[in-house]
Design a binder for these strands. Structure first.
Lengths: 229, 229
DNA sequence: CGATAATTTGATTTTTCTCAAGACGCGTGG
DNA sequence: CCACGCGTCTTGAGAAAAATCAAATTATCG
């Protein structure tokens, strides 16, 4: 259940006054969600919701980062997506979540009752369309990810990942990755050693720079991009 | 453009009278589509729609089988999904298709104007929800596929594929696969040789039988299922 | 400063791919 | 009816990619 988990993980909840001062998001549908959601804090590695739990809430990241993943019985893990501030996750059409969501770093997350969003959609066709659009957008993301997992070499996967993160996090040539190597590995369908070696290799190529293990400088986007095609 | 492709591929179109005799599908939303769609025939390997073409139509398979795929510049191909009779594909929220759809075998397909479905959704909230549900269902399929591509060994992928096809095609222990080995390989992110070898190995194990290369008998579902976890 | 977690690196094994060739199935025409 | 050609499938041998196992190095935090 969300509340059990969240309450355990929650270390502080902003009061209503501080919420009101926040600028409203520009996101078409979910801008108004700030008004009906509650902020919650999750510490690093805290579970936000679990696989098979009721999907009674929708989440929007205020700050931090989240991984959405599935853990198989034998310990193998696939990370389906990373989410960053401003993004919405956990919206399902079915009754239950199909994946687990965890905070990658300490995160503040807006938690909205799903029923209130769905009720809004029932009255307003625009909102209904935006729910559809949101799911369609998720679909597109997973489809792109599928191409990566099905077609690409380790080097291509890492390159595609770095380009994607640079675009999403800073849209510059320098990124601070919020997630550890193991998360990157589980996202890309590789082992942590292969991710590490590939990064080193890209650095040796002078395709990227690695001031620290988490900080990446894209030195040659042409090469990184060509690795995709 | 659909019409260019489809008209080329189309060899016969049933007349209105014969369409009317067909039983209406039980699918909640799309049952009524029979009334507003046109039947078209596509020969084996004919393109139904192409990547980046306008997504002006939605498709429902009457008979045959379809692959939805993407071809990369360098010739690598990823098959995102197979579709079988009764299933709907090609529904997009954006203006253009993001994948290519091709007939795997000679197929008869109902072609429906997207605008007529979307117009219906604008008036009827139930229909709108069903469009959403359809996309959510696609999402679920791709998510499952992602787990397969990201986590599983060749043997596990083939086993999962065979179980899935058996369930969808006949729900018995014997299946006639409509697609060639190369399609299976491109679906599973493997080479044709690895698929072939894995099939042979499963047959040697007595886990499956292979009366012909396309016909598969599931002899030991327990073993096949355990390969998934 | 020490303990712990995260990352990198090395050596080796396993898996899968690649390249090559052979076998099989099927339809066509002799 | 059989031979031929063509597309599909299987099999084998060797190469390449990535995984695994193990250890060293680096960063982080109290």
């Amino acid at each position: 259940m969300l509340m059990q988990t969240a309450v355990q993980a929650n270390t502080s909840r902003q009061d209503t006054a501080s919420r009101r001062q926040r600028p409203v998001s520009l996101h078409p549908l979910f801008g108004s969600l700030e008004l009906i959601g509650a902020r919650m804090s999750f510490t690093r590695n805290a579970e936000i919701y679990g696989d098979d739990e009721p999907a009674d809430y929708v989440y929007k990241i205020i700050s931090g980062a989240v991984r959405v993943c599935k853990l198989l019985d034998d310990g193998r893990r696939q990370i389906a997506a990373f989410h960053l501030p401003g993004e919405i996750f956990g919206l399902e059409i079915g009754k239950e979540h199909r994946f687990t969501a965890e905070a990658i770093v300490d995160s503040v997350i807006l938690v909205i009752k799903r029923s209130s969003v769905v009720a809004l959609a029932a009255r307003d066709g625009d909102v209904a369309r935006q729910l559809w659009a949101h799911t369609a957008n998720d679909l597109q993301g997973v489809q792109d990810h599928m191409l990566l997992l099905g077609c690409m070499s380790a080097k291509e996967r890492v390159a595609a990942f770095l380009l994607q993160m640079a675009k999403r996090i800073s849209d510059t040539n320098e990124v601070e990755l919020p997630m550890p190597r193991q998360d990157i590995a589980d996202y890309l369908g590789l082992t942590i050693e292969t991710v590490s070696r590939t990064m080193t290799q890209l650095e040796t190529d002078a395709t990227i720079g690695l001031p620290t293990s988490r900080r990446v400088v894209l030195r040659n986007r042409a090469v990184l991009g060509r690795l995709n095609a």
